[in-house]
Design a protein around this nucleic acid. Structure first.
Length: 604
RNA sequence: GGGGGCGUAGUUCAGUUGGUUAGAACGUCGCCCUGUCACGGCGAAGGUCGCGGGUUCGAGUCCCGUCGCUCCCGCCA
């Protein structure tokens, strides 16, 4: 018989009845009847009830064993009679009658319980992550994550990709997020940087003649956290393809993502076939966001014309000053009480808007404060433009274009929420395409890259030479699912001449470009294939599949919002010797010095 | 860097208008219990109310500061 187990805690069934079996695991729960004792033994695979009574020498040992003690139990598999069977457990038709028991590891009194659904503070969970991870929900999430990654790998290989490893210690990239730096011992005063993404490496791989690359790639960015953004590090399904158009990239990755969501989505419907493509401009207009949640059925429309020079002076005056008006429908809400509209107006004020205007299209005619000040023709125009029916209402946001677009997106979400219109059971994907290549900086008036400077401008060199830069689109795209940005990607600019020109428009001299991006630029001078790719975020994919609102729920050992690992005590101070070797002298702000001293004392 | 929420037994929480000895549940420990599966019953231990200061005859409660967790803005090519 195996030293520790003949079966896992989830394996035994009725057909094993009569066999001798050995299982090992953690004491999940005990039910002590004085002379009869049940112990639920748990491992990764499940739960098995073990039973013993006062006549057994094992009884005393088990009675004294605290929850989460690790045991090895050997005994006889016995069927449970009708009334004592437990159909909630796969192993519920049998139990293990304890013959001998071996304590493999004792457990101290627990700071947090593993069994049960009790919620614990983030601090508690992260400090005792090893206990937290023993809980069913977390175990399921981590197994899901592992299975999702395995499936992504299978699907990428099947699509002709190979997986390659790119450096973790690399150079600081001048654009983008804040880098994590690693001091060099051999080169005093110089630093490596952890990659924000393997972007340049994968483009170099294409230039080196490798056709289809992918990697489950760790990425490091020293930026503040959010609920869907872990501080410090995260994983991407990073991929890149040579000799492809934007359509090729879409056609290749769509079945991979849709397939994974079908496989792990528990039957929740997934966008079928090609994902809808929405231009950036359209997305900002209709959804008020560049990551629209298509489960929300509401569409925004522009109704500036209807208010221009109208009797509703507040909007008319603002329009003369360059404002626009966006309309958000509120289906079947015209008979909501006044207080409902007032509350929404209050919400709008709290969120920095002047307020939230509205028209109620009641059966007996348009109503509400705005309707009174607009002539019938204009009201009818709004009704037609928004497609509102009798019984609906329509909300209005009036502000400068960018502010109005963004806020109407918030209103769209809020109204959908208020009216309960979101279908949570679906995964709805889309591509956001045609991002602008350049934009004007509001403060400086300068033309800047609006996203990735290495994307290919649509129209290539000719567009850069002949078009108003602000009208040039890039071959740049995002994948969005249920309002979550899964990734951005692009067809890259592989032509040095076009790159120089694009940077020139954004105000860079050739020598600046060479100084900052010399490595990649140089490679492109010796024959580079047209290429493009993307990098869907693994953590976010798993988050969506697990239906978790927070990214920490799908990461084994996450850091706190302030980028601390409570389990490993990172970051931490290092020894004088280590600092000397790295040629580093600390120059700390006063508060940190005080704090560091306190920390040392507490430890001693 | 800025704003919001939370912080009370080991844990999750309750705690009225500022007023006697700060409560409950789970956990822990002890006793009882031979068919439970969130077993049940009886009992006990367990608190610097995050920390510091202030107002007050009196502060868990009010005020100021600070620390921690968290959500958002900034930031995230």
């Amino acid at each position: 018989m195996h030293r520790y187990r003949t079966h896992t805690c989830g394996a035994l069934r009725q057909e094993n009845a009569g066999q001798e079996a050995r299982i090992s695991g953690w004491v999940h729960r005990k039910r002590d009847h004085g002379n009869l004792l049940f112990v639920d033994l748990r491992d990764q695979h499940g739960l098995t009830q073990c039973v013993t009574d006062i006549s057994s020498p094992a009884f005393k040992i088990l009675e004294a064993a605290r929850p989460e003690t690790v045991l090895c139990v050997t005994g006889k598999v016995v069927p449970r009679s009708g009334e004592t069977a437990n159909d909630k457990l796969p192993t519920g038709r049998i139990e293990l009658v304890v013959g001998t028991v071996d304590i493999l590891s004792e457990a101290a009194v627990l700071p947090m319980q593993v069994a049960g659904e009790q919620e614990y503070s983030e601090e508690m969970r992260l400090s005792y992550r090893f206990l937290d991870l023993r809980r069913e929900k977390m175990r399921d999430n981590m197994l899901l994550r592992s299975n999702v990654i395995a499936s992504l790998r299978r699907r990428m290989w099947a699509a002709g990709f190979h997986e390659y490893q790119t450096p973790i210690l690399t150079a600081s990239s001048p654009e983008g997020a804040r880098d994590f730096l690693v001091p060099s011992r051999i080169h005093p005063g110089k630093f490596y940087a952890l990659p924000q993404a393997p972007q340049q490496f994968k483009q170099l791989l294409m230039t080196s003649g490798f056709d289809r690359y992918f990697q489950i790639a760790p990425c490091f960015r020293d930026e503040d956290s959010r609920a869907d953004r872990s501080p410090g590090e995260f994983y991407q399904l990073d991929f890149e393809m040579a000799f492809v158009t934007q359509d090729d990239v879409f056609d290749t990755i769509t079945p991979v993502l849709a397939g994974v969501f079908e496989e792990f989505g528990n039957g929740r419907p997934v966008t079928q076939g090609a994902f809808p493509r929405i231009t950036y401009a359209d997305s900002m207009l209709k959804y008020g966001s560049d990551k629209p949640d298509l489960r929300n059925p509401l569409l925004i429309t522009d109704v500036t014309e209807a208010f221009k020079g109208s009797g509703f002076g507040l909007f008319a005056k603002n329009i003369d000053k360059g404002a626009i008006v966006r309309a958000i429908p509120g289906p079947k809400s015209s008979d909501q009480p006044r207080s409902w509209f007032d509350k929404l107006n209050e919400w709008a004020r709290e969120n920095g808007a002047g307020g939230l205007g509205y028209i109620q299209f009641k059966a007996e005619g348009p109503a509400g404060p705005i309707a009174k000040n607009l002539d019938a023709e204009r009201v009818a125009k709004i009704k037609a433009a928004t497609g509102a029916n009798d019984g609906d209402s329509v909300f209005f946001v009036c502000d400068q274009p960018e502010v109005a677009a963004k806020f109407s997106g918030l209103v769209r979400t809020k109204i959908c929420d208020e009216l309960g219109l979101l279908d949570r059971s679906k995964f709805m994907f889309c591509w956001i395409v045609d991002f602008p290549m350049f934009e004007r900086n509001k403060d400086t008036g300068q033309i800047e890259f609006s996203h990735n400077p290495f994307s290919m401008p649509q129209g290539g060199m000719e567009a850069l030479l002949n078009q108003d830069p602000l009208t040039i689109k890039a071959f740049q795209y995002d994948i969005v699912c249920n309002g979550v940005e899964l990734s951005s990607g692009a067809i890259r600019n592989h032509r040095p001449d076009i790159m120089y020109k694009a940077f020139e428009i954004a105000g860079y001299k050739n020598e600046d470009v060479e100084a900052r991006f010399g490595g990649m630029l140089n490679a492109f001078k010796y024959g580079a294939p047209p290429h493009g790719g993307s990098a869907p975020g693994i953590d976010r994919i798993v988050m969506l599949l697990a239906d978790e609102p927070n990214i920490r729920e799908v990461i084994l050992f996450p850091m706190t919002g302030r980028a601390e690992d409570l389990l490993m005590q990172a970051p931490n101070s290092v020894s004088e010797k280590q600092l000397r070797e790295l040629h580093i002298k600390l120059n700390l702000p006063k508060e940190s010095v005080a704090k560091a001293e306190v920390k040392t004392e507490a430890k001693a």
